[in-house]
Write a protein that binds this DNA or RNA. Sequence first.
RNA 1: AGAGAGCUGGCAGAGUGGUCGAUUGCGGCAGUCUUGAAAACUGUUGACUGUUACAGGUCCGGGGGUUCGAAUCCCUCGCUCUCUACCA
Length: 423
Amino acid sequence: MLQIQQIKENKAATIEGLNRKYFKGGQEAVEQVLRLDEKRRETQVELDNTLAKSNALAKEIGGLMKAGKKEEAETVKAETGTLKVRSKELEESLKILESDLYEVLVTLPNLPHSSVPAGKTPEENEVILEHGTIPTLYDGAVPHWDLIKKYDIIDFELGNKIAGAGFPVYKGKGARIQRALINFFLDEAINAGYTEIQPPILINRESGFGTGQLPDKDGQMYHATEDDLFLIPTAEVPITNMYRDAILQESELPIKNAGYTPCFRREAGSWGAHVRGLNRLHQFDKIEIVRIEKPENSYAALEEMSLHVQSLLQKLELPYRVLRLCGGDMSFTSALTYDMEVWSAAQGRWLEVSSVSNFETYQSNRLKLRMKTEGKSQLLHTLNGSALALPRILASILENNQTAEGIKIPKVLVPYCGFEVIG
RNA sequence: AGAGAGCUGGCAGAGUGGUCGAUUGCGGCAGUCUUGAAAACUGUUGACUGUUACAGGUCCGGGGGUUCGAAUCCCUCGCUCUCUACCA
């Protein structure tokens, strides 16, 4: 959520930023926010004054009662009636104004960082780096959805039987390589200074609001209605919400957390080759890194996170590229996002495997996540990224490393897997 | 799941209708003393909102109610603890 104070002080820059994100009606929305805020403050002042009068009279009555002047007290009591009615009215309109303001405010996306390239579509994202060579596959090479059947390591039909589409069953070496990837990613994160977290994978409404899944993206989460809990779409939600409504000491920063969780997404996408196999699932595994930083350090932290993700891809010997997303393709909440894409040899296209973002104060404003310095509290910056999500990494490993003799496991994973080939 | 007891400032813990946003202790910060430190002593120390600054307003688990006035009474939801039951 954007800060009203910032909008007020930088009206033109706010509108310009909204435009760069291709947000429609930015100017009108900003003006509406300012109008509602002014009205809200006027009402607040009037309410405060009314309450102040009521409080003064109540004290007076208290004094008179103590002094035993009952009749005088009754006279003053009569005066409070109109004040009470008035403050009720004002309270009502204040509530309405506040929720109106909130409703407009939450529709506004975060403003893009100055380095964000102009553009609206994925094609306009800026490729800032390419690493590794795209492999030439042998003649019998096939996409991963054929490989998993050939080697019987992932069974979609079985998942379909016990849960539904998009819930794969990993078997044998398929299950073992999953576990190997999880441990590898977690170990790498710990070595990079992150603290391992095992959060709940069900969250309450407050947490959903905190990171912005609620109120309007609730259709994308599985909902346990009996207890009004939601299955997490990413570990970002519980791990970031650990710091909801918190005031941190400067000495506690930076905070670097990493957590492995299964992730659940209801709207896994439409049919077609782009969502076949492991490309898009209802349930998948992911290691997420989450950081809380002082504002002046957050962009250095973002670069560090990007390098961390890249080091994982390098160790897995996967050819990848890094994109700086353009304004129109960035997520709603992000100020700057890098996407890492891995080359999927048999599909012949780039697959997004990670997205690291700096949200600046957009999340912390709603979370009320602050730091205290010299008696003043200021909002902190939050960042997160996948490091990494398993399905597409697995797909790329399978496709890029396939040979006539089987699939070769990347060296770095062999100690974790306990085997060198799937064949 | 049943019965009971609770939920107050960073922590502990008073406060059962009237200057209570809240006694006190610990912790934190500043100072005095000291070569320095400790001890002792003195002062200070919640959040949000708001004003140029003051003032003012809101917050005692969340929400609602009674009252001129609520931390205190009532309703409701949530959570914690103890006992019983159940269970990986």
